[in-house]
């Protein structure tokens, strides 16, 4: 009898608790929604504004016009900066990916003295503030006469991009069964064949993600470029920074919209590759 009373009590308290929970959840949900809005709204509000017919930016825009896009594509300072950024970022992506994948293999598979120190050195560009890297490399380049050269900027950005490749590739390498490589080798494959036909296909999602990170790391980089690129090698972020520092040039709305669409595409493709990679390993 006493037991029964107790269970009854428990069930009522559970029910009343359940009833009290939704309010907390609603408040939490609304708050989270507002935080998400804070994160996304500023990014998305730029797109309709870039089609504004007004001379000054306003929202909602008073009429539809492509004037800011025309402005972007017809002005050499904008197009040249864009082309320069793409050239630098693609070169950086190729260099950093090749160097980074090689280093990742060594870091995950090899065992040698000082590995922990090497690991620390490799991730440190991710935490050392860009301004420090910028003036340090600037100091070096002044002595080597590499300031305002294409390869000077490419090398500097490559160093900043390598850690992103290594972090992504080592993560996939660690989650993969080494016995697959051993199996290939016991069947007579040499080191290169094992890498090409076993390792590479399995870690390709990580390599893809690393390459994307490397591209973005260079394409979006402003501070190092500000110090070493010079006016003739001006990149797109440098041009945007100038446009924002002087007056707020609405052409940047058009540039920004294109960059936002670009980053959404990149995000979507990275997600697709990740899913495909996961599907393959599952099936």
């Amino acid at each position: 009898m006493a037991e029964r009373v107790e269970t009854l009590e428990v069930s009522t308290t559970v029910r009343s608790r359940r009833r009290s929970v939704p309010w907390a959840r609603i408040v939490l949900g609304v708050f989270s929604g507002l935080v998400l809005l804070y994160l996304v709204a500023p990014v998305l509000i730029v797109i309709p504004m870039s089609f504004s017919a007004a001379k000054y930016l306003s929202f909602p825009p008073p009429g539809f016009s492509l004037q800011w896009y025309e402005n972007f594509f017809s002005r050499a300072d904008w197009t040249q900066a864009t082309i320069q950024s793409i050239r630098v970022a693609v070169t950086v992506m190729v260099l950093a990916t090749v160097i980074g994948v090689a280093a990742s293999l060594a870091l995950v598979r090899g065992s040698f003295p000082g590995k922990e120190v090497i690991n620390l050195i490799i991730v440190s560009p991710l935490v050392v503030p860009s301004i420090i890297v910028a003036i340090a490399i600037y100091g070096l380049y002044v002595r080597l006469h590499l300031v305002q050269t294409f390869w000077g900027l490419v090398l500097a950005h490559t160093v900043l991009a390598i850690p992103y490749v290594i972090v992504n590739v080592t993560a996939t390498l660690r989650g993969f069964d080494v016995r697959l490589e051993h199996a290939a080798q016991s069947l007579g494959a040499n080191g290169w064949q094992t890498f090409r036909y076993v390792t590479l296909p399995l870690i390709s999602p990580g390599i893809f993600a690393g390459a994307v990170f490397a591209f973005i790391a260079s394409f979006d980089e402003l501070i190092v470029a500000l110090f070493i690129a010079g006016a003739r090698g001006r990149t797109l972020p440098m041009r945007m920074f100038e446009g924002l520092r002087m007056e707020i040039d609405p052409t940047i709305a058009a540039v920004s919209s294109m960059l936002i669409v670009f980053s959404i595409l990149v995000l979507a493709s990275a997600e697709l590759v990740r899913r495909r990679g996961r599907g393959e390993s599952a099936g």
């Binding site: 998400l36 994160l39 996304v40 500023p42 990014v43 730029v46 979006d220 920004s256 936002i260 980053s263």
Partner: peptide, 29 residues
């Protein structure tokens, strides 16, 4: 919902700063 966190994460800091300048300036949105 995480996509909504990742879209700004992948967007250039300059673009995001620009957006805030447009929103917060004196004659801003």
């Amino acid at each position: 919902l995480m996509i909504l966190v990742l879209i700004p994460f992948w967007t250039s800091i300059l673009v995001r700063t620009y957006a805030w300048m447009v929103l917060l300036q004196r004659q801003g949105v």
